[in-house]
Design a protein around this nucleic acid. Structure first.
Lengths: 191, 191
DNA sequence: ACCTGAACACCGTTCAAGT
DNA sequence: ACCTGAACACCGTTCAAGT
């Protein structure tokens, strides 16, 4: 049995996938969920709050995908790489969800903040493991941030069409692999 | 003398700075420019087209800032670093303009596409110069994409509050410097 | 506790009309 | 060629009312 709340979240996510952000109106969400256009106000403070719930769900799904991708690899750097690649693939497969999830959020959204904290923690853990094995040098938290920021930026630029318009060799996946390779080969920065 | 078109662009940019994207309505733009709320349609196809003109202007200003920052340094890697830092600083100083400029653009916007091509070209040139001097290893276009994507992603995550919430040591500036340092020290990737 | 229908203020866009 | 005012369809949000 699905609660109305869950139904509203799913409806919003589907509208987002099918028609982009502009298709996600409370009226359309309500219609798709089979309720009136202001039923959402009984479950969410406002539209932003509903969207935050959608984003939180997406972020949890992304974290799961990254963990399961990492689990399929054995080497420590392999796990980190698989995790980062999963991030990039997910973002490219669901651009609208990606933009929503990592967009600008005003105000407090506990559920989303929790999901974000869990995601960050998961990434840091993988990199720390690789660092403890000597497979990645430098401060683990810095390395994790480096890898994450690169993957995120590469996908974002790629989605907006700015990246690798001329060269076919420059894809988010390749950049991520290149960075991880570089980090595993380089001397520790004399900080 | 300022044309109405220029006045509309400036008005939109100012509203964006002061009140965020939601403050940029055609009615407010018109009022601030001293014309009616649909005068913009005589100069732009629609609202998106006006925003694209704003974004193009911002992108040109950013490119100028990067070039002038690079000019103040002498070493090849110094120029690349100064350029990347200028990018990051600009984005942090003008988050709303940054989000707009690198947001999703549907359809053709020649002016914006031109500005983007010029920006990319400028960045590639700086990195190519450093590579030709042996200061940066690896394929120059890949290295440029790496640096750019990292700076872009670091700022974007930082603005949405996901980056370095726990550690004060993780800022976009530091990550950019760290990456460039790593790229200048590392062995060439065996491709 | 949850939902509805009417209403409000606002928005982007179109159109006939003015100079 | 450029601008205006009225109008249209749509939106998020509020509110009184129903169960």
């Amino acid at each position: 049995m699905m609660t109305t709340r869950q139904l509203l979240i799913r409806s919003a996510a589907r509208l987002l996938d099918e028609g982009g952000p502009s298709a996600v109106t409370l009226r359309a969400v309500g219609a798709l969920a089979g309720v009136s256009h202001n039923a959402p106000y009984k479950h969410f403070a406002d539209k932003q709050d509903l969207l935050a719930a959608v984003a939180a769900g997406e972020l949890r799904a992304l974290t799961r995908a990254m963990k399961s991708a990492a689990a399929r690899r054995t080497s420590a750097t392999g796990k980190v790489e698989a995790s980062a690649i999963a991030y990039v693939r997910w973002a490219q497969a669901h651009p609208a969800r990606f933009k929503l999830t990592f967009g600008s959020w005003e105000g407090e959204h506990d559920e989303l903040a929790d999901a974000a904290a869990t995601a960050v923690e998961s990434m840091n853990k993988g990199v720390s493991f690789a660092a403890s094995q000597g497979a990645l040098r430098g401060d683990p938290e810095q390395s994790a941030a480096l890898i994450w920021a690169l993957g995120h930026g590469a996908v974002d630029l790629s989605l907006s069409g700015h990246l690798g318009k001329r060269s076919r060799a420059i894809t988010p996946e390749r950049l991520v692999k290149l960075l991880i390779q570089t980090l595993s080969e380089s001397e520790p920065p004399q900080r």
